[in-house]
Design a protein around this nucleic acid. Sequence first.
DNA 1: GCGGCTGATAAATCATACTTTTGATGCCGA
DNA 2: TCGGCATCAAAAGTATGATTTATCAGCCGC
Lengths: 233, 233
Amino acid sequence: MGVADESLHGAVLDKLGALVVAGEYATGQVLRIEQLEARFGVSRTVVREAVRVLASMGLVSSRRRVGVTVSPRASWNLFDPRVIRWRLDNGERESLLRSLGELRLGVEPVAAALAAAHATPEQCGRLTEAVMRMAVHGRAGDLESYLAADILFHRTLLEASGNDMFGGLSTVVAEVLAGRTHHRLMPAFPEPAAIRRHAEVAQAIQSGDAAEARRAMRDIVEEATRAMLGPGG
Amino acid sequence: MGVADESLHGAVLDKLGALVVAGEYATGQVLRIEQLEARFGVSRTVVREAVRVLASMGLVSSRRRVGVTVSPRASWNLFDPRVIRWRLDNGERESLLRSLGELRLGVEPVAAALAAAHATPEQCGRLTEAVMRMAVHGRAGDLESYLAADILFHRTLLEASGNDMFGGLSTVVAEVLAGRTHHRLMPAFPEPAAIRRHAEVAQAIQSGDAAEARRAMRDIVEEATRAMLGPGG
DNA sequence: GCGGCTGATAAATCATACTTTTGATGCCGA
DNA sequence: TCGGCATCAAAAGTATGATTTATCAGCCGC
């Protein structure tokens, strides 16, 4: 799925990151490089590189004469897709999905409105294409292909906003969508209503109707969050 | 300012990252580790660790027998504070600030509204404290202290939203505010009106008025963006 | 009790050797 | 001439020992 399989370093990074995020190591706890070498059965080089990356994500900090210290949550880079995945894989799934839902509620309707102004014909085409695939795979109950189409839709929309930073959120949104599917928070057959709303957004963007695009997009995010977290959410 | 001074590895990371973001190396160009050792006058270990971190930010990818390849922009992690700083330091400042302004416009008003519901008394106190400091240092024309107070305000507000992901954006917002000050996009004496608006937000949050908090916050972001990018922006 | 000295410790850095992957080259047969 | 296959070599990946440096903790003298 990620970098993990490709290299030793990636595997260690993935395991160690997951452990930290899962709270296996308490905040402030110090790990020693040597210890980690033994734990994972790899060389110093590999451990150090993994630790460096974790440090760059704010999960740990490394100081001479002290060791590798687990950092408090506040300093984590919560927008790193790997951090999101590790968190989704671990317990606090529900509260994280709620947070991500609120974030999407702030971002995606605005992005949809901007997309209505900025989307190229080619991007409009891709949106329609994505909706079509969602419909086809949704009816067939092929959740994995449905997911791919859903991700394509949201990624295209965020890119079409013409705003780099919104575009940069596409990996975050993709993690949310993937997490929802892979943790069985999706019904076996996606709601036809959800697909219809996506079509509405695509249509509104194509005809340059910013207000309608915003509204339909808000509906999508609101409904998706509600469906995931239950009626009370 | 950052990690740079602390270690060789940090210095190399900072320089190399800035070069990539500045477009000194074209997308797809390959760098060789050995080359970089010579370029920066450090050992392989140091270069490799810097490259690993850059790879984790999506700026480059490293493959056997090929070298270190500069990745296309689309795969960069635009929410990494260092990437933001590198971009602000380099040419595309204006368009990036516009993008970040739109992002803040999507996020901060929502966060303010949430904060009105969730802020603890202690957080309300810190907001008021921050506004006071802004007023004092603003009158004195001490932009660096004003900046610190401004950052404190926004960070506290985002944290008070009770939403992890909004809290995680505080470093991004901090980079925007710092960039604005350090690139002389601030007037020598901050607008009293801006400070007043911050006071309004703090007040609205304290009294639990979500709608008013949202409105005042939107004013802050809109006006700040307008002031930075000129009347046309 | 406080401030500075000192030694021990663990990360940081450097240098080097070995391994593995993979792009490139060139050969051979169809 | 072209396409597939074996071989080679380049460059990253991995491992490890040696050396440097920062920092903590304890000691000493005032």
